[in-house]
Design a binder for these strands. Structure first.
Lengths: 220, 220
DNA sequence: CTAGCTATCTATAATCT
DNA sequence: TAGATTATAGATAGCTA
């Protein structure tokens, strides 16, 4: 009997710009996930702070941060303290930011717990497939779960809408009174990704060189 | 003939903070390199702009960027209009505070419901052990529950994204109004890396959750 | 787009130089 | 401290649903 090969497995690809658009999208998604996972592992293993910002081919922004992007950027940028006269202002801002950050932490915890719940659900499903007659007694409970989930979902939708609404207000407020640019989603710079990275030369046999230069080699 | 084993090969390690200091250093170096390499490949393959900032355990800053860190950060920060004008600013403040309050309220609700979910799961497992035999005909329900959970997760991720966006706005308002950030070369703060990641619980079976929320979902 | 699968490629933990 | 080695863990290209 001739079977078709189930998979070619992972094929080697040249590190050069992917031409096929859909393919590129998929690769971007997967590798972005992988990159962020690597980053998260580095955080956990070594207890470091990281921020990653990526502008996707589709002009979207993706970011990863521990504890969160803003705090890391803040630290990074304040290494060269901007000649800001309004010191008090920044303090106030920082204080308020604490609230939002706290919310972020809560949300993250919730996400973790939900992941666990999902896992549980999956294993239940698998067990049922493995033999319905063995595990049928678990049936009535999930119904409750579903109901609760519906409510939860509704709450979340509301919340989402509220956030969006508030965001709008904020944006409108600041735009009409001050600066003329609205460009939250703008694509001002086009083709920024066309040029080859200057920091990486695929034709060279030299191992890649990364911008991993530390900036604090015993300066103090 | 007995040969000595040349290598144990790569061993599995738990994703949790490495305790041994020297070991941690080595791992950090290697994984940082690996991370930057992945980033460089992503740049080349997909033609995207990336910035990565890492505060190492040794209090150093490492960064990677294509085309360079500053331009990416600049772009990132510029996405949110720098709010200037005291009047408008206060209005924004007010809205933002309302926002936070609302978020808190909803979060509390969600947390409560999640608690219920957890309890439900616990009792579910107990029941399974007890092996009661009723209601087996409702077995298909759990699948729906799982589906709902998926949706719920998505909703939460969006919510997280919104919160992060808010944080960005606020932070950027306080930073970008002052001056261009150029500098990279100093080391100041200490002890920021001691805390464990709040977003990852190594004792749980939950897979890692990443902060990979895009900002371009057309909310505006 | 999200998710799963498999074969294969790549990263890297442990070890040694 | 840093690079080389090796075997294994982990990431992912190409498909499929």
């Amino acid at each position: 009997m001739v079977k078709k090969k189930p998979s070619m497995g992972r094929q080697k690809i040249p590190i050069a710009k992917i031409s096929k658009r859909t393919h590129l999208q998929v690769t971007f998604s997967k590798r972005r996930s992988g990159l962020f996972k690597k980053a998260s592992e580095l955080c956990t293993l070594c207890g470091v702070e990281i921020a990653i910002i990526v502008f996707s081919p589709a002009e979207k922004v993706f970011s990863f941060g521990h504890p969160n992007v803003d705090s890391v950027l803040d630290r990074f940028l304040s290494r060269i303290p901007p000649p800001e006269s309004a010191g008090a202002h920044q303090i106030v801002e920082a204080h308020r930011n604490a609230n939002v950050r706290e919310l972020n932490v809560h949300l993250t915890e919730i996400l973790n717990q939900l992941e666990a719940e999902k896992k549980r659900g999956e294993s239940l499903q698998q067990m049922r497939k493995a033999g319905q007659r063995q595990f049928w007694w678990e049936a009535p409970i999930p119904e409750l779960g579903l109901h609760e989930l519906e409510q939860l979902k509704v709450s979340l939708e509301e919340l989402k809408q509220n956030v969006a609404k508030e965001t709008n207000k904020i944006l409108i407020g600041s735009i009409s009174s001050s600066s003329p640019f609205v460009a939250v989603n703008d694509v001002g710079t086009t083709g920024f990704f066309e040029s080859k990275p200057t920091w990486f030369n695929p034709t060279s046999t030299t191992p890649n060189i990364y911008y991993d230069f530390g900036y604090g080699h015993g300066l103090f």
